[in-house]
């Protein structure tokens, strides 16, 4: 295995980890602040991707599409929060799971109704197409590099928002004691809608960016949703820092596992057997990682509550 390929895959792992972080951050905030498990988060990711594909196709501009994805996902999130989610905060987790499962059916089937079952493809914007040569002579896709940059920028922005701003203080206070902050005169309902829309916007942005690399289709949010759950379990529910570390761990383990495990098995097996054993084990690697974290720290790496 050449060094260049290894570094390229490391970058791919970093990129998928950062996109997972955008998903997981919203989920973990919503759970931390509102105590709600939201399966429909993957649907917001899909909404973002379809909004980007639709607007980019209509206007020819990827950037307008990206802006539309964030706006559409935030709007869809706010509407869903006001219409449905708001009624679920006081319910048990089973009701939350089933109601948001119903939302997935509605979103997925509704999107299939509007756009059909065929995947849509987005073009990488002209300014970011092609590849760059990194120090050490590694050629890497400029767009993927830009996604890494965008993911890092959003992560920093989110930490500043939660850590330094008035809204962040309210969010953290909401996590700690929601009655008290309501008593102090914060409009808790508006805060909840805001947090939900913020999480939705991040998911929508991730959907548009990943949709550009892969494809935009119904059901694209579901595998990502489950990976985001694994991230949250590893990082600890409610912790943004945990979501970042967990997302990077999952992204890197998944990508590197797929590349490395088959060649590890090739050391003592025939090539074809090594490929299938390696691929099968690689598909399980992140779940094994999750199980290991659970055995050592059942509350996740940075979890406040179990």
């Amino acid at each position: 295995m050449s060094m260049i390929l290894l570094i390229e895959q490391l970058l791919n792992g970093l990129q998928s980890g950062l996109m997972l972080f955008l998903m997981a951050a919203g989920l973990t905030l919503v759970f931390g602040v509102m105590g709600l498990i939201n399966l429909a988060h993957g649907s917001l990711y899909m909404v973002g991707a379809f909004a980007c594909a639709g607007v980019a196709a209509a206007t020819g501009s990827f950037w307008l599409g990206l802006a539309a994805s964030i706006a559409a996902a935030a709007a869809a999130g706010a509407i869903v929060e006001v219409a449905v989610i708001r009624r679920l905060y006081r319910r048990d987790h089973l009701d939350q799971v089933l109601a948001t499962f119903a939302l997935i059916l509605i979103f997925s089937e509704g999107t299939r109704w509007l756009y059909g079952s065929f995947p849509l493809y987005l073009n990488v914007p002209e300014a970011l197409s092609g590849s760059v040569t990194l120090p050490g002579g590694i050629r890497y896709s400029l767009f993927r590099l830009a996604i890494i940059g965008a993911g890092l920028a959003v992560a920093v922005g989110l930490f500043l928002l939660i850590g330094k701003t008035r809204i962040g203080v309210q969010v953290r206070a909401g996590e700690a004691d929601r009655e008290m902050i309501a008593a102090l005169g914060v409009d808790i309902r508006r805060l909840y809608t805001l947090v939900f829309a913020l999480g939705a916007a991040l998911a929508g942005m991730a959907g548009a960016l990943v949709g550009t690399i892969q494809s935009v289709q119904v059901g694209m949010g579901e595998p990502v949703l489950i990976l985001a759950f694994v991230v949250i379990v590893i990082g600890g529910i409610g912790s943004i820092k945990g979501a970042l570390i967990g997302a990077l761990l999952v992204g890197l383990t998944d990508t590197m596992g797929r590349v490395l495990l088959p060649s590890v098995f090739e050391l003592f097996m025939e090539t074809s057997a090594a490929t299938s054993v390696g691929a099968a084990l690689a598909s399980m690697a992140i779940y094994i990682l999750m199980a290991l974290v659970l055995i050592v720290k059942p509350g996740g790496l940075f979890g406040a509550r179990a």
């Binding site: 759970f31 498990i37 987790h93 799971v97 489950i226 759950f229 694994v230 949250i232 379990v233 529910i237 779940y287 999750m290 659970l294 059942p298 509350g299 996740g300 179990a306």
Partner: peptide, 9 residues
């Protein structure tokens, strides 16, 4: 919620 997510995973 942990239990839900872990059994799913």
């Amino acid at each position: 919620v942990y239990f839900i997510m872990i059994t799913l995973a």
